[in-house]
């Protein structure tokens, strides 16, 4: 469960008063519900997602994570290119406090990434697609209660995309999913409920279709 109370986020501007991206936002996301966040560019979708992920602190109000929330699925940073895929993945196991069963997790990641022996080669030798595969596999290697995703529709080649989407689908119902996407079909595929961000306010819709309709009406 994720609870936002009077959540607000402001950024300083070069001229004059700060810009409030979000203001007085209240919502409760129940466990195991998949939620799509929509809104136009600059409406604060990614900001909200970063706050849910714990990468950004709210300026006002509070956001409570009462479950284990992932980092953005397929997130690109933090790979050290001189280390191997395995070493990078092992680092993640350690910071997640899962060193004891890391063998099992690593095996799962390696299988999912499906990059063969390159898993034990330095990341600097990877192609863009292989890197994306590794990153995607790394974020799905742990069992989180809630996965967050910021525009992660195009990963790797067609085969991998299919596999990734299938895996994502299998998570729906078992774990929560909070995603930001501009693709209507992706949102409809994955999400039940929707949050529409408009002019700093968040509007909750129990059906994603209603959220999309409201977004389109403006």
């Amino acid at each position: 469960m994720i609870v936002a109370e009077d959540l607000g986020k402001k950024y300083p501007t070069r001229s004059g008063p700060p810009h409030w991206v979000l203001r007085d936002v209240n919502f409760t996301i129940p466990s195991k519900l998949s939620v799509g966040i929509i809104g136009r560019n600059g409406a604060g979708k990614s900001t909200l997602l970063r706050m849910i992920g714990g990468n950004e602190k709210p300026s006002t109000g509070s956001l409570r994570r009462l479950s284990r929330v992932s980092w953005p699925v397929g997130f690109g940073g933090g790979l050290l290119s001189s280390l191997t895929g395995r070493q990078n993945a092992k680092f993640l196991c350690r910071i997640q406090g899962r060193e004891s069963d890391s063998d099992e997790i690593l095996r799962k990641m390696q299988e999912f990434a499906d990059i063969g022996s390159a898993f034990d080669e330095p990341v600097s030798s990877y192609s863009t697609g292989m890197k994306a595969r590794l990153q995607f596999a790394m974020s799905l290697g742990f069992e989180f209660d809630v996965y967050i995703s910021d525009e992660v529709t195009s990963v790797g080649d067609a085969a991998f995309q299919k596999k990734a989407l299938a895996h994502f689908k299998s998570l729906v119902g078992k774990a929560g999913l909070i995603m930001v996407s501009h693709s209507e079909s992706t949102l409809k595929d994955f999400c039940e409920a929707g949050i529409w961000l408009n002019e700093g306010k968040a509007h909750w819709y129990d059906k994603i279709d209603d959220a999309i309709a409201a977004y389109k009406a403006t």
Binding site: N55, W71, F75, G77, G78
Partner: peptide
């Protein structure tokens, strides 16, 4: 290490 701070544990 900026890339790592996306993992909120770090």
């Amino acid at each position: 290490n900026r890339g790592l701070f996306t993992y909120r544990q770090v």
